[in-house]
């Protein structure tokens, strides 16, 4: 199973003014590993991904990609980012480019690769996510789920070492969530190294090799999915997981609680 370390985060600190968002986070991701990060809003999980990709400067700590530090101040971020694929919550395709142009932009311009070769690869990837017939469509003609799948292909076409997913289904209509999650599941099966931030607990359970639970800027728990979801070690994790549970809750009880608290 997992062997080589792709990403190593050591004692990462990040603050916005007075507010400390990441309070000493350490994390190791091995090749082919799928890490799912969960936790309440504002716990720092999105910031963690943004720090890995250099979208947020860090205050202290170290991030290593393939054994070399990318936070020593000498980083040429555009080169590092070519090895780190990132997909955002807001499925931001470039509106002035077709699907294919969106995908080709990075490989051709940033990486300077051969057009025919990249186009071939892009077509294969589009085929895999079921969107080959939309290769010449404009983003405005696609549904949210389709856009997000194209965004994933666009990141994959850079041949990244690791993929970061930042709540990629959070702004999708419910019926489109599945098609995007399926693409990610398939990626995981093919051995892509991934860090996924999500609120889809069932999906997290299915895809994760390891679940990271964050709260208030620290990693509270790191466990295999079965253990985390069935039997979380910390009280905070148990409370968090309860938010997603409706078993045992009835209408009356809820109303009572409401009245009680008022």
């Amino acid at each position: 199973m997992p062997c080589r370390t792709v990403l190593n985060i050591i004692d990462l600190h990040k603050r916005y003014g007075q507010l400390e968002v990441l309070h000493g986070v350490s994390l190791e991701v091995k090749k082919g590993q799928v890490l799912v990060v969960v936790g309440p809003s504002g716990c720092g999980k999105s910031t963690l991904l943004r720090c890995i990709n250099g979208l947020e400067p860090i205050d202290s700590g170290n991030i290593e990609l393939n054994g070399g530090s990318i936070t020593d101040g000498k980083t040429r971020w555009n080169l590092v980012r070519q090895k780190i694929g990132m997909v955002f919550q807001s499925y931001d395709l470039f509106p002035h480019m077709t699907v294919m142009e969106n995908i080709l932009l990075g490989p051709l311009k940033a990486q300077g690769r051969n057009r025919a070769e990249v186009e071939h690869e892009a077509e294969e990837l589009l085929e895999r996510v079921g969107l080959l017939d939309r290769r010449d469509s404009w983003p405005g003609q696609l549904s949210g789920g389709q856009k997000q799948r194209v965004a994933i292909v666009r990141a994959l076409c850079m041949q990244p070492e690791i993929m970061l997913f930042d709540e990629v289904t959070a702004s999708l209509d419910p019926e489109m969530v599945r098609e995007v999650l399926d693409v990610m599941l398939e990626l995981a099966r093919r051995g892509m190294t991934m860090i996924i931030v999500t609120h889809e607990m069932a999906f997290a359970k299915a895809v994760a090799d390891r679940v990271i639970f964050m709260d208030a800027g620290v990693i509270v728990e790191s466990a295999p999915p079965d253990q985390f979801f069935e039997n979380p070690a910390s009280e905070r994790a148990r409370k968090f997981l309860n938010i997603f549970q409706f078993t045992g809750v009835t209408k009356e009880e809820q109303t009572d609680e409401k009245n009680g608290s008022n």
Partner: peptide
């Protein structure tokens, strides 16, 4: 040009110059 567009451009490894030319200016 939204922040999201700029960050997306950065995340696919575009340099600042490329970001301006291919993403920001056309929009």
């Amino acid at each position: 040009v939204s922040r999201n567009q700029i960050e997306t451009g950065l995340s696919i490894g575009l340099s600042r110059r490329q970001l301006i030319r291919y993403v920001m200016l056309p929009q």
